[in-house]
Amino acid sequence: MKFLFMKVDEVVYLVDAYDKERFAESKKELDALLSDEALANVPFLVLGNKIDILYAASEDELRYHLGLTNFITGKGKVNLADSNVCPLEVFMCSIVHKMGYGDGFKWLSQYIK
């Protein structure tokens, strides 16, 4: 059996903010990634997509359902350099309307070496 090991520099996790029925499934998958020891020091960018659709979840609602209310890292306003906290942030976006994700990738770029 062959194993392929790759170095992961960052994780971008896209969630459909409109499909609230699948939030539990999204949380389960995200929890698995966050608990993976190989990703312990890797920054996570969570994108809540489809904010252009009426009744899509707000950022606070998405954070709550994904269990990320205690993972706020300040969107770049908090210095994590001297802490033991892995950068993780949620940005709401609309891929169709090309908005929001640019801010997320800009935030993420400060952690890429």
Rank of each mutant, 00 (worst) to 15 (best):
I51C: 06
L54R: 14
S35V: 09
C93L: 05
V15L: 02
Y13I: 03
C86K: 12
C93H: 01
G67E: 05
H65M: 10
L14M: 14
K27E: 09
L34P: 03
K106T: 15
D103G: 11
V96Q: 14
I72T: 11
G100L: 01
M92W: 05
T73K: 04
L34D: 06
Y101W: 07
N41D: 13
E59C: 02
I51Q: 04
Y18P: 07
I53S: 06
C86G: 07
I112H: 11
D31V: 07
Y55E: 14
H65L: 08
E89V: 03
I72Y: 15
M1T: 11
V42E: 06
A40S: 13
D60K: 11
G100Q: 03
K113I: 12
K28H: 13
A32T: 11
E89M: 05
A81Y: 13
D103W: 02
L4H: 12
K20N: 09
D16C: 08
M6D: 12
L39C: 08
Y64K: 15
G74Q: 03
F3G: 14
V46Q: 01
V42Q: 07
N49E: 01
F105R: 06
V11M: 04
D52H: 01
P43D: 05
Y13Q: 02
L108V: 09
V11I: 13
K50C: 04
P43I: 09
V42F: 09
G100F: 00
E61C: 04
K106H: 15
D82L: 15
S58F: 08
A56H: 07
G76V: 03
M99F: 10
N49V: 05
C93M: 05
S26C: 12
M1A: 10
K113P: 15
V46E: 01
K77F: 10
A57V: 05
D31A: 11
L4Y: 14
D9V: 10
V8C: 14
K50M: 07
P43A: 08
N79Q: 12
K27L: 07
L30Q: 01
F44S: 03
R63Q: 01
N70T: 15
M92Q: 05
H65A: 12
S35K: 14
K7E: 14
L47Q: 01
K27F: 08
T73Y: 06
F71Y: 15
I51N: 02
L108E: 01
S94T: 04
G48Q: 01
E29V: 11
G100H: 03
L47R: 00
T69G: 09
Y64D: 15
D31M: 07
L45R: 02
V78T: 13
E21Y: 09
V11K: 00
G100T: 03
